[in-house]
Simulated scan of single mutants.
Amino acid sequence: MLTEQRKQLILDRLKCDGRVVAKDLSAELALSEDTIRRDLRELAAAGLLTRVHGGALPASPTVVGLPARRVMAVEEKQKLAAAGAALVERGQTVFIDGGTTNLALVRHLPLAVEATVITHSPQIAAALEPHEGVKVILVGGTLLRHSMVCVGAAALEAVTRLRADLFFLGLTGLHAEEGGTTGDYEEAQIKRAILQRSAEVVSLLTTEKIGAVSRFLVCRANALSSVIVPRRVPHAALAATGIRILEV
């Protein structure tokens, strides 16, 4: 079997089974584990999978730049956003993470909503301008342009002084075993800090994020209170973790 054929087989197995075990695939193809591991390294370098001990898991396609993310799964995001906005109650303190789905959520909030919103995303803060009943607290720091959120020591310190009733957590992947992940180390730190200061944590997940894994761990799957996902997307493994699953 040619190298490109092996790589396509690996990607097909990931799509079908959600995991590739290097030892099993090498035995099936009568090839050395070193050969399979080399294929996995090259596919990981191309951003097509995430390597884990003994094999690989699907990589999230949502670690690409912001312009590309804006046009991904637009219809799904609108449905997820509407359901997320409906969870915000009068008088709550809500932390809204960055991301295109959470930005859509803000735009679905009723203009008459009364709440306090904390965010480290200048885009989220600006989108709340029409909501006169919303007090906005913007956490500053070093702007991470990939996600347009503030990170770094100043942001981390500010977050530790705040507390929220509800946190809309942005993830690039959620896997039942590997947990919730994202593509940037500093951003993962901020997300963990906010999660620890929030009474309830909700994540809005488009189809390609479910079962996918990015490089940096944010939390274990059962750290989430609930997830909002598209209807008919397989999520039995997530349900087994005890997460409340809301379908839209």
Rank of each mutant, 00 (worst) to 15 (best):
G152I: 08
L156D: 07
A45W: 03
V88Q: 12
E132S: 09
P67Y: 06
S147P: 03
T62C: 06
R90G: 11
V134L: 13
L49T: 04
M148S: 10
T62P: 02
L128C: 07
L162R: 00
P110I: 03
L162E: 01
S121I: 15
P110Y: 07
V52Y: 04
H53Y: 15
I118G: 14
G47I: 06
A68G: 02
R107E: 13
E129T: 10
G91P: 09
A44W: 08
S121T: 14
A112C: 07
A153R: 13
M148E: 14
A154R: 09
A115V: 12
L138N: 04
A158T: 10
V63A: 11
H131T: 03
V159K: 04
V52N: 06
H120Q: 10
A155H: 06
L49I: 05
Q78Y: 00
V117I: 15
A85K: 08
L105R: 07
V94T: 11
A83N: 08
I118L: 15
I96C: 04
G54H: 09
L162I: 05
V149T: 13
L144S: 00
V113R: 02
R41S: 14
T50D: 07
V136I: 11
V63D: 06
A104N: 09
E114Q: 13
A126Y: 10
K135M: 07
C150E: 06
F167I: 05
R37E: 10
E114I: 08
D165G: 07
V149D: 07
G55M: 06
A56T: 01
V136G: 09
V71Y: 05
A86R: 05
V74W: 06
A83F: 08
H53V: 11
L103K: 05
A83I: 07
G152E: 04
L169C: 13
A82G: 01
T119I: 09
G99I: 12
C150G: 05
G84R: 01
N102E: 02
P61F: 00
E114V: 13
G55D: 06
G54E: 12
A81V: 08
G84A: 06
G54Y: 09
V106T: 11
Q92S: 12
A68C: 09
L43H: 09
V151N: 01
A155C: 15
E42R: 12
A164Y: 04
I118C: 14
N102S: 01
R161V: 03
R38K: 15
A85T: 06
G55T: 10
S121N: 08
V94H: 13
Q123G: 10
T62Q: 07
A83S: 15
T160N: 14
V88N: 14
E89R: 15
M148A: 08
L162G: 00
K135E: 14
T142H: 10
E89C: 13
V113M: 04
T93W: 07
I137R: 05
A86F: 02
